[in-house]
């Protein structure tokens, strides 16, 4: 083989080597960054904890709307961004309806954006989680027809245990969400300004596959342990109160007909209420 041919052969090899190395670098960048991004969110259950915390926040602070954990769709981008979407559900007359969607964007576990889109018109100032003040409640039944299914948030005449809530079920009333006394409710419900969201737990659905009281405490612990809380729940203080005094239910979200509400008001089982939804 003459020198010319050897040089040509070496040049050809060098050309192929350069092409292969360049293509490898170009094609490897995206999968490697994506893998690092996925590993970051999968390690220590970071992504699952973010999702669980938001689900818990809905379950514990929203008396009417619930986030369905089975509808969660998560997307992870190569640049360490996480987006998750879930359907928001509400119960009317024993039936679950999808009433909106929730979408949150995270960059390295810090929430960068949040979008809540409801399928029905909502007040422009409506926020998540809901805040209740003294001015929200009404005492009279005017403008509520007897035969209409409604959802109300009611303050009971006294505190109940979960078993004692049977007294409402006897009047054809479904208790959808129980508001738990956490020591701050007097301040919240007598104030005219937003203070803290109410805390309670859904009665008809389980969170994390567990039911009611046990699940509630677990969820509250999760919120209390959370290092980054987007809103002030005073979760640690309230958890300590509940652990000390036990779970005592002073109110709740009720699904019932107008006539049943009237009856409960007449029997003084309900002190006051806020109309959350009329039937669709």
């Amino acid at each position: 083989m003459d020198t010319q041919k050897i040089i040509l052969h070496a040049k050809q090899r060098a050309k192929w080597n350069t092409i292969i190395v360049l293509l490898t670098i170009i094609l490897a960048i995206s999968p490697i960054i994506y893998m690092l991004s996925i590993t970051y969110y999968a390690a220590n259950d970071r992504a699952n904890n973010l999702i669980a915390r938001t689900t818990a926040l809905y379950a514990l602070t929203d008396p009417a709307v619930d986030m369905n954990p089975t509808t969660v769709q998560t997307t992870i981008s190569p640049l360490f961004n996480l987006t998750f979407e879930a359907e928001l559900e509400e119960q009317y007359a024993g039936q679950d309806y999808t009433v909106g969607s929730y979408e949150a964007h995270y960059g390295l576990t810090t929430k960068t954006a949040e979008k809540i889109a409801m399928n029905y018109p909502t007040p422009a100032d409506q926020q998540f989680p809901k805040y209740f003040t003294a001015t929200d409640f009404q005492l009279d039944m005017k403008e509520i027809p007897d035969d209409k299914w409604i959802t109300v948030f009611a303050i009971f005449n006294k505190n109940y245990t979960e078993d004692e809530l049977q007294v409402f079920l006897r009047h054809n009333v479904s208790v959808l969400w129980s508001a738990v006394d956490t020591g701050l409710e007097e301040e919240i419900l007598t104030s005219t300004a937003d203070t803290y969201p109410l805390i309670g737990y859904p009665m008809t659905k389980s969170v994390d596959g567990e039911q009611t009281e046990e699940s509630f405490l677990k969820q509250l612990e999760r919120l209390a342990e959370s290092p980054q809380q987007p809103i002030d729940l005073a979760a640690k203080k309230r958890l300590a109160y509940v652990k000390e005094h036990g779970i005592s239910i002073y109110g709740g979200t009720l699904s019932l007909k107008g006539s049943a509400l009237k009856k409960l008001m007449d029997m003084h089982l309900i002190q006051k209420f806020k109309l959350l939804q009329e039937d669709m």
């Binding site: 999968p31 994506y34 969110y41 999968a42 999702i51 969660v72 769709q73 998560t74 879930a86």
Partner: peptide, 30 residues
């Protein structure tokens, strides 16, 4: 040389794909 390169590159690609798949499966709804 090319054989070794191909062997390493394919193994690494399969490994990356496996890690990504594990991550996606372990994240709720991913």
């Amino acid at each position: 040389k090319y054989g070794l390169y191909a062997l390493l590159l394919t193994s690494c690609t399969v490994l990356i794909a496996a890690v990504i798949l594990w991550g996606l499966v372990s994240i709720n709804g991913a």
